[in-house]
Design a protein around this nucleic acid. Structure first.
Lengths: 345, 345
DNA sequence: TCTTAGCACTTAGTAAGTTTGAGTGCTAAA
DNA sequence: TTTAGCACTCAAACTTACTAAGTGCTAAGA
């Protein structure tokens, strides 16, 4: 249990260290704190905080820096989200104000905005697809050898892929497959479709075509691609700013993580309610050991829940970041609601 | 004019410095050169080379490093392409040996292979599109509000994009546009199509539809996208290895250059015959000042000419790189010929 | 005329020692 | 419980000295 004064000191240590990057000592604190006590008193309190593992020294006679546990306590008990700066709100609203024609454009733009506002690296994820439903499937022949498969969902997502077809297929065959899929599967959610694809459908399709596997694979491919939660990254290069020592290897492994990961959950963890902060080694992933990740969910009514996140150094102005994410997710939710409302009308 | 011996010394300086990264002195050279002269003699020759601006000292009593002009001379007169290592050939052939279904996959894979072989950053560009011809255009309605436009070229490239259509359009209208385009433009090269699009077509289409502009824009968009020379980059992260000092700003500007440039010509310069080396400040672009770029063209008969390139430090084993690019472009050309032959059959 | 031994000189890099300043913990008195 | 005072610690900055690798130049030899 911390006394009021200890909390005040811990808060000051975190704030100071965040601003300066330099371990903070008792004298500096004594000068700056609102209460009037001597540096010796502060030293005693600091010793108590160190005892509890909330701050630590970098060497035996140095000032103190917050430990991961200290940040944790700060974030859980002491931090108060900063109100959004008027400039930032303007910036958000004008960047999201444009006329977008795809959800993905909004989401990707959001990653850029967030990274610009924070000068960290931002991730955005659109509302979960697991509730969106298949609303159409097409196979379009393109010359003798290629077919394009197009899948549309009721949330307006379009996924497409071109395939080689080994033999000349007739238009009738294509139409038969398309009709089957549209008859049987439209209106179901994507996970339901994926499931049916492994059970009912192969049986049915066999009666339409001699070589059904090819076409099922095609459909399955596009479906999988559509069901994948893709995420957007903004400000990749900002990593170069805030990776304290330019350790090339760890930078590389971080970049590989970001670029080669299909499942964003590996990076961001499972979505939690509200706004959540993960600090340093609290994250399972080794490459993130020296960073902090703030994630926030946003809700777009019946259209599901999405996620935004910021990756920055452990020494991060948490109050500002939390305030920013809190405001941003509301603006984003509003914008998406507008978008859906217009398209569903 | 350089004497034989001066050439020998310049070559040795370049080779030594490339291997070690350390300025090379007269004694080391005297020991290693095939001729038997004293270090004093070498010193005299080196003074002559410095006089001509081919080598320079890093400080008044240091050994010598090649200047940009020195590298230039080396590359123009002294370098001999290394024969390919058997391992490298294996690696190339097995990586290109797979079954590819798109040209772009081959080209993109090539960038990866090249960057792996060199541990530098590689660029690849597919054979120029300006000779490829429009072979088909489709408009596929996807629900009430969206239409997908698909463009196919005779070289097997497929380009697509979805568009919002403001009002409900009838299938007949779409078909009319598609028929017009296919009737009038199929078989022309993409630049020809682009040109016609600005002259003949608007007149003709006016008689089909009341509001032609929308559809022409759509077609124009996809066409432009298809005509764009896109390039692939392999080994982006290798930049982190060979950027000597980790100057964050210059790294950032280099990455922005790579990622945000639409027109590769800004980076690689105009394609030159054969294999060409650009060294340090010979490049117009400031971000490349500390690097060297080796570009090579490759020809795929009537399918046009493509380009591959490697970006590395000025201190680069040019002989090996030139040998490698020379061999790679032949393997790539072969692979592409096979590919086209199969698809044109 | 070219080559070379020899020598005085320059410089970056390394290592070891010194100083400084910001910090600590502890003690004893208020 | 607070605080002044003091002895102590340590990183960082600065000095100093030394070494190793190089240079240019001169004068003698081939």
């Amino acid at each position: 249990m911390l006394s009021e004064r200890q909390m005040m000191i811990l808060r000051a240590v975190v704030r100071d260290f965040t601003n300066s990057g330099v371990p903070v000592g008792s004298k500096a604190l004594a000068k700056q704190l609102p209460i009037h006590v001597s540096s010796a008193t502060i030293r005693n309190e600091m010793a108590a905080l160190e005892e509890q593992g909330l701050i630590r020294k970098t060497h035996s006679s140095s000032g103190r820096v917050p430990s991961v546990e200290g940040y944790r306590y700060y974030v859980d008990h002491l931090v108060k989200p900063d109100p959004l700066r008027p400039n930032d709100l303007n910036m958000i609203q004008s960047s999201l104000g444009g006329d977008f024609h795809k959800i993905d454009e909004i989401i990707s733009q959001s990653a850029t905005i967030l990274s610009n506002l924070t000068s960290y690296t931002a991730f955005t994820l659109k509302p979960e697809l697991k509730d969106s439903r298949l609303s159409g499937f097409r196979l379009v022949p393109l010359g003798r050898r290629q077919v394009m498969a197009i899948l549309v969902t009721d949330s307006g997502d379009v996924e497409n892929q071109t395939f080689d077809v080994t033999e000349a297929v007739t238009g009738e065959q294509l139409e038969a497959v398309v009709r089957l899929i549209n008859d049987q599967l439209v209106g179901l959610t994507l996970p339901e479709v994926l499931k049916k694809l492994q059970t009912d459908i192969p049986v049915k399709i066999a009666s339409y075509l001699q070589s059904p596997e090819g076409f099922l694979d095609i459909f399955g491919n596009v479906l999988t691609k559509a069901a994948q939660e893709r995420f957007y990254v903004g400000g990749r290069l900002n990593l170069l700013n805030f990776s304290e020592d330019h350790d090339v290897d760890s930078l590389k492994s971080l970049y590989s993580l970001i670029d080669k990961t299909d499942d964003i959950a590996d990076v961001l963890g499972q979505p939690r309610d509200n706004i959540s902060v993960q600090i340093g080694n609290e994250m399972t992933n080794d490459a993130l050991r020296n960073y902090s990740l703030i994630t926030a969910t946003y809700d777009v009514d019946q259209h599901g829940r999405g996620m935004i996140a910021i990756l920055g150094p452990t020494r991060m102005p948490y109050s500002r970041m939390i305030g920013l994410l809190g405001a941003f997710r509301e603006e984003l939710a509003k914008k998406l609601l507008d978008y859906y409302r217009y398209y569903d009308e």
